[in-house]
Design a protein around this nucleic acid. Structure first.
Length: 928
DNA sequence: TCGCTGTGCAA
DNA sequence: TATTGCACAGCGA
């Protein structure tokens, strides 16, 4: 006879803890071991007296379940889990693992759902199943092959079959247990039931009407208060019944072999029992095993879990085939997530990981800012469903000691390090003195190449590629806001499963994404461009840039004075005071009160449009000029002059963050602060550039920018000989263009012609229309059309290239850059004119903008590599799309100027030469 | 406090 | 009805 025991882990832990609450077991380290002790005792008793052939333990996961979705108050009155229990849970899990007993865990469901589902399947497969739990709700699951094995409060055991259940609850059928629970409710789970109806009344009603539904149908036959209560709470009764119903179709596979009772891992158990100081227990279970430290056996295993893992894997695969898994559920069975928190375990883990060709890792930290972040722990995974968490202490010295074990591992260039947003984790480890070395695989950046304009968050990727919704960070830290907890305040017992899961998921994502990279021919782009540039960016961010704060402070005062004066003038002219920077209020003042125009333009939300373009057309009114001035000054003051100094870190420098996975074209973006939109055009804006200065008197600012890189790329792509020749002859490209489209000699091109040609050149790159160009140049549409026609006539290859790109995009639904970066344009065949138009412009622009991005990334890698070999004091500190900025030591200036120029110009060879301009100065403005 | 809107800075 | 971004102030839920 096959005999299966299914244990409700969490319920047993709670019971064991509270059974000894007056007399808890505390070991010499001050740890309350009541729960682990009680659990182990129960387990041993079963193993000895009941002799099961199969066994498993199910645990609830912290994730909310479908019941919470049904009823948001579900378990809402639960007090916070006592800390002793939070600590006990991972310990008990370790014990279960050491016994080689599979753990059944499924996010979105509770242990009773998992146990119920397995029990029903086992019943059909000829098992005798015992569900061990103090929870009486399980009574609903009992049948001729399934029993409730219930440790009673008195210390004895109660075994309930169908007969016993009916007797105990005074019911006619077992399934009425659910109706009973639905009627009387459950204070513990905050299930309401019908107020005023207890077990007695419930039984009476069920005897008469069989089910909750039956009672509701016949509510008219009831009398007095009872009638009132039932009819008032009928919805609540139905809901309560639903909540009390244990789900029997959760997506877990029933795999007999996996549940087979196995020999425990004696070594591991001895170690754990020693840790917990279970001396008597140790003697009882392993007589002759003195309480001493046990050294791990070297070699042989490929996994820290020996043979247990393959079984788990088999189950996993079977799950996928057998059951359609809801996207919001986890299909995990018997995950092995372990705490690594002793000297021996560090060594054991390092030894194991050192033998792998790759591993995923993830750091848990106290801040989203990688330069300020302190690590609270590191998780690792080298195999699906297996992960390890190394908690740290936030004491830098101690943590460096702990991590010293892992240093060689992170430096080993034969092992691929996998992570999600690796730049961050590498920096966090760098803060602790560990300079992680490649090769790298960043799952976020891999997906960026696969689907550049989708989102690349780990949760999204997991749901899409693994059909699995990871536990959200909010589950641990709470919702964002003032009350959100910091990682530093969370005990590692609550973090480690989340952390392990992240490493596990990241590893699994790598498996999914690497084949996608291959399929999309993006492997070289990934390994040779994005991964190396990631490291370059990290170093640039860490380096930061020096700001002249006193000059900004002085300027802030100047601006403030001017702003106050402008405010006064504006209020005078308007005849009232209002908030000038509120477009809504400003619109009302200008267009309702002052009636500056008859038919003011409105925005899509019905407000008056007061943007720069609109106001420029109304400059004849005195107030408008003042408002434009006010806007400019306010903008500069709030966005730059006052904001930049606030972002200075302890080292006196500002450190931007480059985001490598935001711009769909392949460009970088920059935040906190955005260093890619520092003003330069207006004279007031130039003052801000002046505040970006070299690090000290021994250094100078050097700015090197590609000249007309996007136009050169278009010339090369279209193979337009006229344009290529113009570039080869080092002509001013806009003047050359003007000469052609206006059909005059180059010497006769005036500034207006050049301006129009320049705008046309930019427009071409963006996929311009006659309308757009007419707007941009403020000329009639007809003239804009003529300009475009002339352009295409003079540069027929450009026209042909644009048509070809769009046609190719219609076939492929994607476009490609020089280095193989794709952008998908699934709207390119849309019947919607507007939507399709957008896709067509992207088809023109993305390869050009993206190729420029590819080229400068390549240049950055080459430059960084060269600078490393030269051991230079100079640093590359910023990138602004087509420009690189360096803090150059004066001794190295000539070398840097010539070599950087050379490396940038030769980053990639095209039919058109690349040219760069080099500038130097004490500040960024001068360097141009 | 969050998210949206309008605005404006850069390549 | 021109490409790609980020950040600000105001404002309402």
């Amino acid at each position: 006879m096959k005999k299966l025991f299914l244990l409700d882990g969490m319920a047993l832990i709670f019971r064991a803890h509270f059974a000894l609450i007056r007399n808890p077991r505390i070991n010499s380290k001050g740890v309350n071991t009541s729960a682990p002790m009680g659990f182990v005792n129960s387990l041993l008793e079963i193993l000895k007296k009941q002799e099961p052939t199969h066994i498993a333990v199910s645990f609830d996961l912290p994730a909310p379940t479908f019941r919470h979705e049904m009823y948001k108050e579900y378990k809402a009155n639960r007090q916070e889990t006592p800390e002793d229990i939070s600590i006990a849970i991972p310990i008990v899990k370790q014990i279960v693992d050491a016994f080689n007993i599979p753990r059944l865990e499924l996010a979105g469901f509770e242990a009773d759902d998992v146990i119920g589902t397995i029990a029903k399947k086992a019943s059909g497969a000829g098992f005798q199943t015992y569900m061990m739990t103090p929870d009486k709700d399980y009574a609903q699951l009992v049948d001729e092959n399934t029993f409730l094995y219930r440790p009673s409060t008195k210390g004895g055991i109660e075994v309930l079959g169908p007969k016993e259940v009916l007797e105990k609850f005074d019911l006619d059928r077992v399934d009425q247990v659910i109706d009973l629970l639905g009627l009387q409710g459950d204070a513990v789970d905050n299930i309401p039931g019908v107020p005023g109806v207890g077990p007695k009344t419930a039984c009476k009603l069920l005897k008469e009407y069989s089910t909750v539904e039956g009672i509701i149908e016949n509510v008219d036959q009831l009398k007095g208060k009872l009638k009132e209560r039932v009819s008032e709470n009928r919805d609540q009764a139905i809901l309560s019944k639903e909540l009390a119903t244990i789900k029997l179709d959760v997506p877990v596979a029933f795999n007999e072999d996996q549940l087979l009772l196995k020999e425990p891992n004696k070594e591991e158990l001895v170690k754990i029992f020693n840790d917990l100081e279970f001396k008597t227990l140790l003697k009882r279970v392993f007589p002759g095993e003195a309480p001493k430290k046990v050294a791990p056996k070297p070699g042989e295993q490929t996994s820290l879990f020996g043979g247990a893992a393959p079984a788990a894997k088999a189950v996993q695969e079977e799950v996928v085939e057998e059951i359609e898994i809801p996207i919001d559920t986890i299909n995990s069975v018997a995950k092995n997530y372990r705490l690594i928190d002793s000297e021996e375990r560090y060594q054991e883990l390092v030894e194991y990981l050192s033998k792998q060709s790759e591993f995923a890792f993830d750091t848990e930290t106290t801040s989203l800012d990688s330069l300020l972040a302190e690590a609270v722990g590191v998780s690792f995974s080298a195999k699906k469903d297996e992960a390890y968490y190394v908690p740290l202490t936030l004491d830098k010295e101690k943590d460096q000691k702990i991590l010293a074990h892992f240093k060689d591992l992170f430096l080993n260039e034969k092992i691929l390090k996998i992570g999600q947003n690796l730049k961050y984790d590498i920096q966090v480890l760098d803060n602790l003195g560990i300079a992680v070395k490649g090769p790298f695989f960043d799952t976020m950046l891999a997906h960026y190449l696969i689907e550049p304009d989708k989102r690349h968050g780990m949760d999204t990727l997991s749901e899409h590629y693994l059909n699995y919704k990871p536990v959200s960070i909010e589950t641990i830290l709470g919702k964002k806001g003032k009350k959100q907890k910091n990682m530093r305040d969370i005990p590692f017992t609550e973090v480690y499963e989340y952390a392990c899961e992240d490493a596990d998921v990241t590893l699994q994502l790598k498996y999914a994404l690497e084949s996608q990279l291959k399929e999309k021919d993006a492997e070289s782009l990934f390994y040779d461009l994005e991964m190396p540039v990631m490291e370059t960016l990290r170093v640039m961010e860490k380096e930061g840039v020096n700001l002249d704060v006193p000059s900004l402070e002085t300027y802030s005062v100047t601006l403030a004075d001017e702003i106050v004066q402008l405010e006064k003038d504006i209020y005078d002219l308007a005849g009232e005071e209002f908030t000038i920077s509120s477009p809504k209020q400003l619109g009302i003042v200008l267009f309702e009160k002052m009636k500056l125009v008859d038919k003011p333009k409105k925005t899509k939300t019905g407000q008056y449009a007061t943007g720069e373009e609109i106001l420029q057309g109304l400059r004849q009114h005195d107030i408008v000029g003042k408002i434009l001035d006010f806007r400019q000054l306010n903008k500069l003051k709030s966005t730059y002059v006052d904001a930049l100094p606030k972002l200075i870190k302890e080292d006196g420098r500002v450190h931007t963050t480059y985001n490598q996975a935001v711009a769909a074209t392949g460009r970088l973006s920059s935040t906190d602060p955005n260093l890619q939109n520092i003003p330069i055009r207006s004279s007031r804006g130039k003052e801000i550039r002046k505040a970006f200065v070299a690090r000290d008197e021994d250094h100078v600012f050097m700015a090197v920018d590609y000249s007309q890189v996007e136009l050169r790329i278009m010339a090369a792509f279209s193979n337009d000989q006229e344009m290529i020749n113009a570039f080869k002859a080092k002509k001013d490209i806009h003047t050359a263009t003007a000469a052609k489209v206006f059909k005059v000699a180059e010497q006769e091109v005036d500034s207006d012609m050049r301006r129009k040609a320049k705008t046309a050149n930019f427009g071409i790159i963006y996929g311009v229309s006659a309308f757009g160009l007419s707007q941009q140049l403020d000329i009639p549409r007809s003239e804009a059309k003529q300009l475009i026609d002339a352009y295409f006539e003079e540069f027929p290859s450009v026209k042909k290239y644009m048509d070809d790109v769009i046609n190719k995009a219609r076939e492929d639904e994607f476009v490609t850059t020089l280095m193989g970066r794709r952008r998908y344009l699934r709207d390119i065949n849309s019947r919607n004119f507007t939507v399709r138009g957008m896709a067509e412009r992207n088809a023109i622009n993305a390869p050009i903008q993206g190729t420029a991005a590819d080229i400068i990334k390549k240049a950055m890698i080459d430059i960084q590599q060269w600078m490393n070999t030269q051991n230079l004091q100079s640093k590359m500190i910023m990138q602004v799309h087509d420009e690189l900025i360096f803090d150059v030591h004066k001794d190295e200036l000539e070398l840097m100027k010539s070599k950087v120029k050379e490396l940038m110009e030769n980053a990639y060879e095209m039919k058109v030469p690349l040219e760069v301009e080099v500038g130097e100065g004490t500040n960024w403005l001068q360097a141009h």
